[in-house]
């Protein structure tokens, strides 16, 4: 079974985010790393490919400046190769344009299963995987807690408000994976070394049969036109616990008539 895993390379979430003052786009010009949210999909993809008797595991990523450091992390975990789309024309792309780019690239890999996170940690729009499923004409099962392959279909436990639904879906299909459902492996030394020589094929927008006005700021058809400060919240009382602080919580809750 061939698996494609969508990987987003994002600015380090530990560093404070910043908007470009001219475009109000999130600045993505620093070194990028693999979004932690994608590590679950990578692990899931590797496990499913292994358990179904092998197959290619291909990463797909769209990133500025031919960035590969996040891809190398996923290659070190065990993915076989990566397809990277990097083009100045893509700056400012919205979720739908991103989905068009990823869909056109994924077609080249002809996968049986496409895995993505439910949303990225930086933009967290959360629509790209299902948009790309629609563009590819594929079914999607979102918010997966568990996936198993059964012949030419998958069985998925999908998160719901009340619990979960067991969903059956024929392949090829798109699945989004929720965080924490598998334990991502740490790349070992051998994996890290091997990742350095694994193929990363790079594409431009023109290689994908897309026109430049479908992507980037023009293709987005939406704009951040203003950024204002939110109403700040004032910090209240701070108490150091010396064994009795629970009483302060009790009296706080009493004042609110909650107990």
């Amino acid at each position: 079974m061939n698996v494609v895993i969508c990987v987003k390379q994002i600015p380090d979430p530990a560093a404070p985010g910043e908007l470009d003052p001219n475009t109000n786009n999130l600045k993505r010009d620093s070194k990028l790393i693999m979004d932690d949210s994608d590590s679950y999909g990578v692990e899931m993809g590797l496990q499913l490919a292994e358990s179904s008797g092998g197959g290619e595991v291909t990463l797909v990523s769209m990133a500025p400046n031919s960035e590969t450091s996040g891809l190398r992390t996923a290659l070190a975990m065990g993915a076989g190769k990566a397809l990277l789309i990097s083009d100045e024309a893509l700056a400012g792309s919205d979720a739908l344009s991103t989905a068009k780019v990823l869909a056109a690239t994924i077609k080249k890999a002809q996968p049986d299963l496409i895995i993505a996170a439910t949303e990225s940690s930086d933009g967290y729009t959360g629509t790209t995987p299902v948009q790309l499923a629609e563009i590819l004409g594929l079914p999607a099962v979102t918010f997966a807690k568990k996936i198993s392959v059964e012949g030419s279909s998958i069985k998925v436990e999908r998160q719901t408000e009340a619990g979960y639904d067991e969903v059956s879906c024929p392949l090829p299909a798109v699945v989004t994976v929720t965080a924490g459902v598998v334990e991502p492996r740490y790349p070992n030394f051998k994996g890290i070394m091997a990742a350095k020589s694994k193929p990363v094929e790079e594409f431009k927008v023109s290689d994908l049969g897309l026109s430049a006005d479908e992507v980037g700021n023009t293709g987005a058809r939406q704009v951040v036109f203003e950024v204002i400060a939110a109403e700040a919240r004032q910090a209240g009382e701070k108490i150091v616990d010396e064994g009795e602080a629970h009483k302060d919580i009790i009296s706080f809750l009493e004042k609110l008539k909650l107990i």
Binding site: V130, A133, Q222
Partner: peptide
Amino acid sequence: YDGRDIAARLSAKLNLPVLT
């Protein structure tokens, strides 16, 4: 969960942007 699925499907189907 379902709202996000519906919005994303519709956005791609109608080729319309969506704000989330």
